[in-house]
Design a protein around this nucleic acid. Structure first.
Lengths: 339, 339
DNA sequence: TTGTAGGCGTTATCAA
DNA sequence: TTGATAACGCCTACAA
């Protein structure tokens, strides 16, 4: 019933050569006469030969698999990054295998175990939660295989990380609001204790500091800014303030969107009364009324760079690790901040 | 440098047993004495044994890999479906490997080749373009391995397909518009020659037919309805019409969104003048002003069902194939169609 | 330039 | 209930 797969032995028999010669010829080993090589390739083609990855991996102790762990696949930025990773790796003969942490450390652990069980050659991780320790990761990987963090990276690690320039991003956003004439710019943020937020804060401060006017810092810190709903809370907070800000720089577009919606409902004019810049250029950003200006970066590019770096580490085990790659952010100006 | 992996031989030596016994014990073969089994499991744990998937696959001729081909990972519905697939398969010890076709047949072919090279045990495909023939797929798979189409499925095939009930979806949308009081309901669509569109059309017709009033059919056919931009074209077409429709049922939410935006700009009131229902419940649907009503379905659920079915086919090769699974759609009513 | 032989780790078959 | 052995397909010293 089952048709047998063609192996190098079949080719060898057909050509009256040794299997080792076929093996060498197939990978274009120059030790094999060119004429023989051609003959082998031709015959392989003709017989529909496909090399068996299991035998190869068993022999080489290489899987040509890269493991990826992300919070969730359905996030637009995650899928873009994976797209970048996939495109880069597939041209080099590597495949990816994906685990989702759903933002939970325990699922991150089991995903990691799954990937290690599958003997991945390298690991690309966007953390579930950068607040927790990395012990579980160190433990599972035992530092034996190349590991790169991307996008959601830990504060302290001796692994490579690929991130965007959060300080620059915040700087761009704030500078833009200043140039739009805002006098009181609030930075709406969460956990300020993590370095990502610290960097954003630094960029925000730098922009304020550089401006001629004496702009005062105005931090609005919330526990949660992950959803549209949370943005509405921000709005009600702002509406209650004595001296409302006239410029807002948000953690992300979802919360910015929710906030804008509420502020509008309360009769405020965006951007006349309050100008807004979001973060991430999520799909909603360009569709709301008014469109949300946003600081963003190419998730695809992050994925591409992460993939390139992990390959470098795999192919050159002795190479010193590139400890940190910082990719630039850019500002997308739309109606919510143009006045 | 490289630490050697623990193998069943190591365990065997440690326990003074044969490797074959270890192998059996590890998979809980009842032929092995329970006491021995426990001992083996304990020792395996202690020594940090991990079974080698390559050796196992080489021996079993099974990869425990499922190949997935999708137009693009960054589509929200695709990533949801994959999430459903992943969650289902991972509990059964299967992993996924993904190829993107980017909507092009040639990339679909190379993705297919890649997956076959990796010896996947089954194939889950959402077509790049259901207009083209399936020859390339038949050819690469040679029908040797289980194959299921999901979401974007071919018209004619002897493989299993998992789809939503497009007729019901269209019926729901149209019925809703009728109940909202629309007198002239246009169905905005593309390629009416494919069965998916034919089914939608049928559902649309059925709803019209069932209504008391003598509603006339009103098809607006466009080449492209994939983007917000294309929706704007629809709007300008509608604005030029002598007798404008007062209800619209769209192919998807993006085009509906673009159309609504343009119609509003032209001074029309949505939904008073024209009520609108979209398709897919894309993220934009709930964020626009007014929110777009939408017919939708659970992509995650489609993925889940597809994964379950492919496993069934893999584990029971002789089982007759379930030729077609149709999942229900549901209507999400929002402002754009409530009046 | 090509051939021989052994092993990668697992499992199925047969024997004990 | 357990053990010995061969085989899955490929690769690489080493030999010729």
């Amino acid at each position: 019933m089952e048709e047998k797969e063609v192996t190098i032995y079949d080719i060898a028999r057909e050509l009256d050569l040794a299997s080792s010669t076929i093996s060498r010829a197939l990978k274009n080993d120059p030790k094999v006469k060119l004429k023989t090589r051609n003959k082998v390739h031709q015959m392989a083609q003709k017989m529909g030969y496909q090399s068996n990855p299991f035998a190869r991996s068993l022999r080489n102790k290489r899987s040509f698999l890269i493991g990826i762990i992300v919070p969730r696949l359905t996030n637009h930025f995650v899928s873009s990054a994976i797209s970048g990773i996939e495109d880069t790796l597939s041209t080099k003969g590597y495949n990816i295998i994906i685990g989702q942490s759903y933002g939970q450390t325990d699922k991150e652990i089991s995903a990691l175990k799954m990937l290690m069980d599958n003997r991945v050659d390298g690991l690309l991780i966007s953390l579930a939660d950068y607040a927790t320790s990395l012990e579980h990761i160190d433990q599972s990987t035992k530092k034996k295989i190349p590991l790169i963090f991307f996008d959601q990276v830990p504060d302290l690690t001796d692994s490579s990380v690929i991130v965007i320039d959060h300080a620059q991003a915040a700087y761009l956003a704030t500078k833009h609001l200043i140039q739009a004439g805002c006098k009181k710019i609030a930075h709406v943020t969460t956990h300020v204790n993590h370095s990502i937020y610290a960097e954003k804060y630094a960029g925000y401060k730098k922009a304020l500091f550089e401006s001629d006017k004496k702009l005062k810092e105005e931090l609005l810190v919330f526990d949660d800014l992950s959803s549209i709903e949370s943005g509405k809370n921000v709005a009600s907070h702002i509406l209650k303030m004595n001296k409302r800000p006239d410029g807002l720089f948000f953690e992300n577009d979802s919360s910015a969107a929710g906030c804008i919606a509420s502020l509008k409902k309360a009769g405020l004019n965006i951007p006349k009364d309050i100008a807004v810049v979001g973060f991430n250029d999520e799909p909603i950003a360009s569709l709301l009324d008014p469109n949300i200006s946003s600081v963003t970066y190419s998730a695809y590019e992050i994925g591409r760079v992460a993939a390139q770096n992990i390959l470098l580490q795999i192919e050159n085990p002795e190479m010193p690790k590139i400890s940190k790659t910082v990719l630039p952010a850019r500002l997308i100006v739309r109606e919510s901040s143009s006045r």
